[in-house]
Write a protein that binds this DNA or RNA. Structure first.
Lengths: 211, 211
DNA sequence: ACCTGAACACCGTTCAAGT
DNA sequence: ACCTGAACACCGTTCAAGT
């Protein structure tokens, strides 16, 4: 009955499409075989086993995260643009990014972005260990924020809701604050606000560092 | 053969101990039953099913994250101490925290910390929406950083290693920077440095906010 | 070189039956 | 009220056998 031409790339494509749509848990070897119209065991011939199939998908994703082209008039603005670009790219493939993360390849995936950050931090006048700290702080900030943000999206039904946590009675001395915390956070705004604040503080130490 | 006195709490204790030591994937209903010396099906009588068993463990963890007692002489210092305390508590139960996170209860778990942050930000002179932004920015920063940090620990063998990524040839104009990035990051230091920078910038906008 | 079905050792869960 | 073993429908993986 053997269908003649199953290739490794076909297997990877079908697997990637499954993972993109419904997450890695939805990728079963039997389901994938059904999708491809082959016997389960054929897949093993092409990709080894489930684990190395996932590894291959992750490898692909790391390659796809191409070079970053920062835009803006100042180093701070260009760093902000890097943050924005990364946010968009990460949000386009949430499942795959999570898998990259699980395999500890986040760092390698962010190398192009890291190099862009190095360039900008350098242009802002930071050097040596201080520049390295700034680059890493921004990188951790961006990646960390996106991890938290994604978690929030994945579970929209919080219990108790934020609005219960922060009813006016909870902070009687500042109802405006309570109201603001009761409203859902605007992640994009908070993201840019946070990165801007961090970058401002980090670059402020720049111009020929004090002893 | 029925062993007489299996209780729900015994089941939860045994499950928690398994998860703490070897992660949720190591918690199988059959393994847990063996640990407890009962039939698998007894567990179902006490906790429903695997999913609600995990839910119960998560609920416990959320409760355990007790009140936060900030220390320090200024709001900024006390916020830093909150960051330090959270870091320690989260690092003591990594698997359970990850499960809290997966279930989207991070926010609820951080309520005590959030209230402490509200207090400090308020003491620093921020009010209303601006105060809310500051609280959330710091909260996202702390949680995000710890997620990234934990990921790094889980996968110590990066490929390629940072030292390969940043050999002197990669940044010939600033060998000190290349050397710093080639060295492994010191997470505790980077964590405090980042939070301090962010807090500095956020609180700088405080004293009776400009139009 | 590539595909196949049968079989193995695992899962979580249900259920009728015990006491 | 609480415990039990048998059975079901899933997994990933191996292997001997086909072409």
């Amino acid at each position: 009955m053997a269908r003649s031409s199953l290739t490794r790339d076909e297997v990877l494509d079908a697997a990637a499409s499954l993972v993109k749509q419904r997450g890695p848990a939805a990728l079963t070897m039997r389901g994938l075989a059904a999708e491809l119209g082959t016997a389960v065991t054929s897949i093993y011939w092409h990709v080894g086993n489930r684990e190395s199939l996932l590894d291959a998908l992750v490898e692909r994703t790391v390659q796809e995260m191409g070079a970053i082209r920062p835009v803006g008039r100042s180093p701070a603005e260009r760093i902000l643009s890097v943050a924005r670009i990364l946010r968009r790219e990460l949000r386009e493939r949430p499942h795959l990014i999570a898998m990259v993360h699980e395999r500890g390849l986040t760092e390698r995936m962010f190398l192009p972005a890291q190099q862009a950050l190095v360039h900008e931090v350098h242009a802002a006048g930071l050097r040596g260990a201080r520049a390295a700290d700034a680059v890493r702080a921004v990188q951790f900030q961006i990646v960390g924020f996106l991890l938290v943000e994604r978690n929030r999206e994945r579970s929209p039904a919080q219990s108790p809701a934020e609005s219960e946590l922060w009813d006016p009675a909870a902070a009687p001395h500042d109802p405006g604050l309570a109201r603001a915390l009761a409203r859902p956070a605007d992640p994009e705004r908070l993201f840019l606000l946070s990165v801007r604040a961090l970058v401002t503080a980090l670059l402020a130490t720049a111009p020929t560092a004090p002893g």
